[in-house]
């Protein structure tokens, strides 16, 4: 079994009286396709924001390859090799796709080599024909691809994706899954996919962690998760309310 790349221990986050995360622990191993799922309001996004450093936890510890990164600012965490894409794409609206990717590419490359890295990522993400389009002029599915591309340009070891599949149609979804699988196999990037919809991660991920009301209720392989009574209850319970 490979070494852990990310360890989260006893993470707790409160907003006023609301406990968004309660004593959450998890471990992601190097080269793994990991997923965090849970119904709406389960604390997935909060966990995600705490790992990448946009929010600071009230208690607990986050280790990246053995190094304590708890409470560090996001750009330092990115230096170390973790980055993410957002649930609602946060586009650099007035920049072209090429320029947006360049922002990420500057992380590991100086002025001399940055253009080469941009070309490489554009080729990898199949964005050549769009490279001069402006981010405010493109649709959601392309926007998600740009988000992924600019994140890849920073050459992360661990990439977190927050609901990357939301709003995509089935064809686009299959495409995305192929891209993610390829990234994992060819670029050896560890992926952590935060998802609301179970179907997307079932076929893709090796291990799944389920959150509900800020607590870990299950962890295991897709088969184990899909038959776990607590998970079914969490999802069906929500379904019954709707």
């Amino acid at each position: 079994m490979s070494a852990p790349i990310l360890q989260v221990a006893h993470l707790t986050k409160r907003f006023g009286n609301l406990i968004a995360l309660n004593d959450v622990s998890l471990e992601i191993r190097e080269g793994e396709l990991f997923s965090i799922i849970g119904p709406n309001g389960a604390g997935k996004s909060t966990l995600f924001f705490n790992i990448i450093g946009l929010q600071k936890p009230d208690a607990g510890q986050i280790l990246f390859r053995g190094m304590d990164i708890t409470g560090k600012p996001p750009h330092k965490i990115c230096d170390l090799g973790i980055t993410c894409t957002f649930q609602v794409p946060r586009a650099f609206a007035s920049m072209t796709i090429e320029e947006a990717i360049r922002v990420g590419a500057y992380k590991r490359y100086g002025e001399r080599d940055v253009a080469r890295k941009v070309d490489e990522v554009i080729a990898l993400c199949d964005l050549e024909e769009h490279r001069r389009q402006r981010c405010c002029d493109i649709g959601l599915s392309l926007l998600r691809r740009v988000e992924l591309a600019r994140a890849l340009a920073t050459e992360p070891m661990l990439l977190l994706l927050d609901e990357a599949g939301a709003g995509l149609n089935p064809t686009e979804l299959t495409e995305l899954m192929t891209v993610l699988r390829r990234l994992n196999e060819e670029q050896h990037i560890t992926l952590c996919i935060v998802e609301h919809v179970m179907q997307m991660v079932m076929g893709l991920c090796q291990r799944i962690l389920v959150l509900d009301y800020g607590e870990v209720i299950a962890e295991g392989s897709p088969q184990e998760i899909s038959t776990n009574p607590r998970v079914i209850e969490a999802y069906l319970g929500k379904g019954a309310v709707c």
């Binding site: 750009h75 993410c84 922002v103």
Partner: peptide
């Protein structure tokens, strides 16, 4: 354009 997005791409805003 977006400070959070810049931060996670490694920009010390």
């Amino acid at each position: 354009e977006n400070e959070d997005a810049a931060e996670v791409l490694g920009v010390n805003t």
